[in-house]
Amino acid sequence: MADPSSNSTPSGGIGSTTLRLKLGLAEMLKGGVIMDVMNVEQARIAEEAGAISVMALERVPAMIRAEGGVARMANPKLIRQIMAAVTIPVMAKARIGHFAEAQILQHLGVDFIDESEVLTPADETHHIDKHAFTTPFVCGARNLGEALRRIAEGAAMIRTKGEAGTGDVVHAVQHMRQIVGEIKAITVLSDQELYHAAKVHGAPYELIRMVAKSGKLPVPNFSAGGIATPADAALMMQLGAESIFVGSGIFMKERATPLDVENNPIEREEAVSRARAIVIATTHFNDAKIVADASEAVTGTMKGLAAASIEVQDQMQTRGW
């Protein structure tokens, strides 16, 4: 028999057990699609279409961008309703640095917290100390240094930021290439050069060294921000993403108007077709025939907004430090 004292649960102190469980769930989410949902019906559509997880929020990035105002954590009531409606893991967003929102999300029992630049930041210097939570966190990053700073703070998953709410994949590509390229570059450095690399990237030496030795991030690296079509998903997976976040790409009709999936069967079917196709393309990202067939089955695509037309001060990706 096992010594009962050797049994461990994550409810106690913060140690390797908690981190292993966080990374364990991140591992389970590989090779799939996490979809932003704003109501119970959208969450059901996502689950039916094969999403591995849903992100519960009140407004998808495209609406936040169009409507302006302060974007905050979703109402706990909405999050609870969505958690009750689906069996897949449920994620929710907290503002950068807003640890009280994160405490609420942990209390609600969400499976992953996204400390997200899509919401209006609550702290212009500090991110949340994610080691202080038993719920795992995902954070956005545009480059290796940013990714490793978030991992140092306790993030169990990184997603490249892209430019959320645009339906334009260009920045998702840029950020993934940046991170993958910077990882490759440090794998050839000597031990003494790694100290300098840590300084250049503004990241802890131990993490820089770990990445240099293994050739990959110590946590799963997913892709987000502008992925709107099956081909976009296949592109990001081939560039090295381990899973795909789709925000506004499935449930938006015009720039700030969602498809009416609750009352309009045709618009519901359109959302289902987009969701299914992106799920299929993410798994079969290396098989152009399957991605082509999946793309053909899609009716309609989010109109989108060219990322190049957005002024730098209006970009969401520049939030985070």
Binding site: M1, A2, D3, N7, S8, T9, L21, L25, G109, F112
Partner: peptide, 24 residues
């Protein structure tokens, strides 16, 4: 849910010490 995930050492018929089981 995820907050209830745990690592547990339990009895098994496999030779050796108690088996580490990661539940997610």
């Amino acid at each position: 849910r995820q907050i209830d995930s745990s690592i547990f050492f339990g009895p098994s018929v496999l030779a050796g010490p108690p088996l580490e089981m990661v539940f997610i």
